[in-house]
């Protein structure tokens, strides 16, 4: 940045960045390729033919445990976490815009939730349910465990949004005679919407991939990461990679849908304001 020309440092840093991206994506690309291993192929290269054998194998029920069920549970759990994260963190974001007693303590509790090691949350909730004589399950204890991870992220994002939010819009709405609820409904929420979709994406994917917090809280039915973890210890065929490829593709699809939604939203708004 010292000169207006691209200096040597730009190319060196650019090369470093390229290596970093390769480091991030390279291994995942390897298992994407290896999941198409032929029926006789092993866990490493060389490829022994190309086939969909291991993907078919994945869908044969008894071969690899309850893949379908755990996938469905993970999605259901992710959706619940997503909705609650958006709702709770936006509500709390509104609360934090005003002074209220205990706001400092609540903020530090939320930050602590990010810092406390996942295995403690898992162990603590497991013990708590155990002592109360409750049966832990993915839709109760695991849901709570996931929220302790997604809510602080959601809250911090909402804080960041409100810090950049211009209160003049609200004042204008109030001056024009809007009730507080109308101001929120027709002014604040539409402005926040794109970021809220982001909070939702955060909530869903963090929950969908969460392992440590689910370990002791999922009860008798596994979520997908637990199922995958189980497979790593007792499956020694490329079916493991097939599962890895599928969930990675699924994650990418979710992210893709999120960006598609943002683009559509923006286009829709441009058309409305343009007309």
């Amino acid at each position: 940045m010292n000169t207006s020309r691209r200096g040597l440092s730009f190319y060196l840093l650019g090369a470093f960045f390229a290596l970093f991206v390769l480091f991030l994506y390279g291994p995942t690309a390897t298992i994407l390729i290896l999941s198409f291993q032929g029926p006789e192929g092993g866990l490493t290269f060389p490829m022994n033919g190309v086939s969909l054998h291991w993907f078919r194998n994945l869908f044969e029920q008894q071969a690899v445990g309850d893949f379908g069920g755990s996938f469905r549970r993970s999605i259901a759990l992710g959706l619940m976490v997503m909705v609650l994260t958006v709702l709770f963190s936006v509500l709390a974001g509104f609360a934090f815009r005003r002074r209220f007693r205990g706001s400092g303590a609540l903020f530090y509790l939320a930050v602590a939730s990010l810092i406390v090691p996942s295995i403690l949350v898992s162990l603590g909730i497991g013990l708590f349910f155990n002592i109360l004589g409750l049966e832990p399950s993915w839709y109760s204890s695991a849901l709570g465990a996931h929220l302790t991870w997604t809510l602080p992220f959601g809250l911090l994002i909402v804080f960041a949004i409100f810090n950049r939010f211009n209160p003049a819009y609200e004042e204008a709405a109030r001056d024009l005679g809007a009730s507080p609820w109308q101001t929120v409904r027709h002014v604040v929420l539409p402005i926040l919407l794109p970021s809220l979709i982001g909070v939702g994406l955060f909530g869903f994917t963090l929950s969908y991939d969460e392992f440590a917090r689910t370990l002791m809280t999922a009860g008798s039915f596994n979520t997908l990461p637990l199922e995958i973890y189980g497979m790593t210890t007792n499956v020694t065929t490329p079916v493991l990679y097939a599962l890895g490829s599928l969930t990675t593709v699924f994650s990418f699809t979710v992210i893709g849908l999120f960006f598609l939604g943002l683009i559509l939203l923006r286009r829709h708004r441009l058309r409305r304001t343009g007309a």
Binding site: P27, T28, Y208, I228, T248, I255
Partner: peptide
């Protein structure tokens, strides 16, 4: 946004 376990494997 993708699974940590898969990234390790």
């Amino acid at each position: 946004w993708t699974s940590n376990i898969i990234r390790m494997i």
